[in-house]
């Protein structure tokens, strides 16, 4: 589904990613872990197409297409979803209007019928229940005045509505209390299928107690220096990142 080869990315002439390789197949969950400043968020954002990140080398193939050649909205319409680390506030635009517009843009791209207001509302209500969110959030402006936890849940709600093929969760666990974390993780687990894949970017192992990854990769200084199964995450939790820092880059 996703094939990343030798990806180099710079921000304002500073190289952040220095040759990342990763293969993701449908049905898999990959966790990307690493210390602060290792390039985790850059990795997540560059896949979504944020402009400030300049790809200086390497290639990314998604469902047989060159992902790097696509505009952010094309990527979204092709099924790439980024749950933002810092979800953006858009005053005056209701969550329902926003999601209906997004969903219909994606449905149109897929050649599916547009949903009218009633159909959308029905769908949205179902998905809201999935992540135990109050329906009133549909009528509130996007993330405007939401608490940190509400914003993160809103991201998962959006993911549930848009049903992406590849979901990238950028530090979705940061700032969540344990109950919210459980709710978010439950939401992710319910959406999991053999057709879609997840990349879970996180600093801590805790989330991985709830979302069990198939693979864990350790990103240090712009390279994946260690890959393994879920036990790798536990070892990182116990021993910290120092022991992996000197490892040479490995191919996942």
């Amino acid at each position: 589904m996703l094939s990343i080869k030798n990806l180099h990315v710079s921000v304002e002439d500073t190289e952040i990613l220095k040759g990342v390789n990763l293969e993701v197949k449908p049905g898999e969950i990959h966790a990307i872990m690493g210390p602060n400043g290792s390039g985790k968020s850059t990795f997540a954002n560059v896949l979504a197409g944020r402009e400030e990140y300049e790809v200086t080398d390497g290639e990314v193939t998604y469902l047989g297409q060159d992902l790097l050649d696509m505009a952010p909205e094309e990527r979204a319409r092709e099924g790439v979803f980024l749950a933002f680390q810092y979800p953006v506030e858009i005053p005056g635009v209701s969550t329902s209007h926003f999601m209906k517009t997004a969903l219909n843009a994606i449905r149109e791209h897929r050649g599916e019928e547009q949903l009218d207001a009633m159909q959308f509302l029905k769908l949205a209500r179902e998905k809201m229940q999935l992540i135990e969110m109050d329906e009133k959030f549909l009528h509130r402006s996007v993330n405007d005045g939401f608490s940190g936890g509400e914003k993160k849940r809103n991201e998962i709600f959006q993911m549930a509505v848009l049903e992406p093929k590849l979901a990238i969760l950028d530090e979705t666990d940061s700032g969540l209390d344990i109950d919210a974390l459980r709710i978010v993780a439950n939401g992710v687990n319910k959406l999991r299928s053999s057709d879609n894949a997840f990349i879970v970017v996180t600093h801590y192992q805790r989330l991985l107690n709830y979302i069990v990854p198939d693979y864990v990769h350790v990103l240090v200084d712009g390279r994946i220096v260690e890959s393994g199964d879920k036990n790798l995450a536990l070892r990182l939790e116990e021993q910290g990142y120092d022991w992996v820092k000197d490892n040479d880059a490995v191919t996942a």
Binding site: A48, E73, R75, R77, T101, A102, A105
Partner: peptide, 21 residues
């Protein structure tokens, strides 16, 4: 970018933000 990432193109995104404003 946030709206783009949800599949909404830039022109519509601006329209949406302005109308929200």
């Amino acid at each position: 970018f946030y709206l783009n990432q949800r599949g909404i193109d830039t022109e519509d995104a601006i329209g949406m933000i302005v109308n929200g404003y």
